[in-house]
Amino acid sequence: MVIVKRKTLTLAERLYLPEILRGLSITFRKMFQPKVTRQYPEEPLPTNEVTRGQPRLRELTEGHLACVSCGLCEAACPAYAITIDGQETDRFIEREPERFEIDMLRCILCGFCEEACPKEAIFMSTELELAGFTRESFKYGIDKLKRSTEELAPRMEYIKRINERW
């Protein structure tokens, strides 16, 4: 059997007041310490290339996507969030999407589309905020998904580095 010996309190401790004053001094000092709250909308969350935000399409040349509408991301998508209609083009890559739509309400940000893509055309961006008033407004088309190569460059580099390991 374990016998726990209770600490006998000194008179000062039994009077409470000195200990209460000690506690009050602690809380008073805390008032002047720097705050830890993040003021969210003004002070956004820190992101880097590892952040797996919403998927975005890379722009290869001015106004044209790198996507060749092969449909691999559409097939890889576990949430059936991606819909692609392809069409022919006179450009060197020969095919491009006529319609590339991601339903952001279905998207689970898993990053499978990015892994499946053979053309470095779709990447998970650092964009995390998603808000709208209607369901339709969450169906992002090419106009909303298009991002320049520079914007997606850190993520591209990161993905390349990851892929080189295999």
């Binding site: 809380t27 805390k30 008032m31 720097p34 705050k35 709250t37």
Partner: peptide
């Protein structure tokens, strides 16, 4: 004050 004592705003 409660916020400041808990390091909030």
């Amino acid at each position: 004050f409660s916020a400041w004592m808990q390091l909030r705003y």
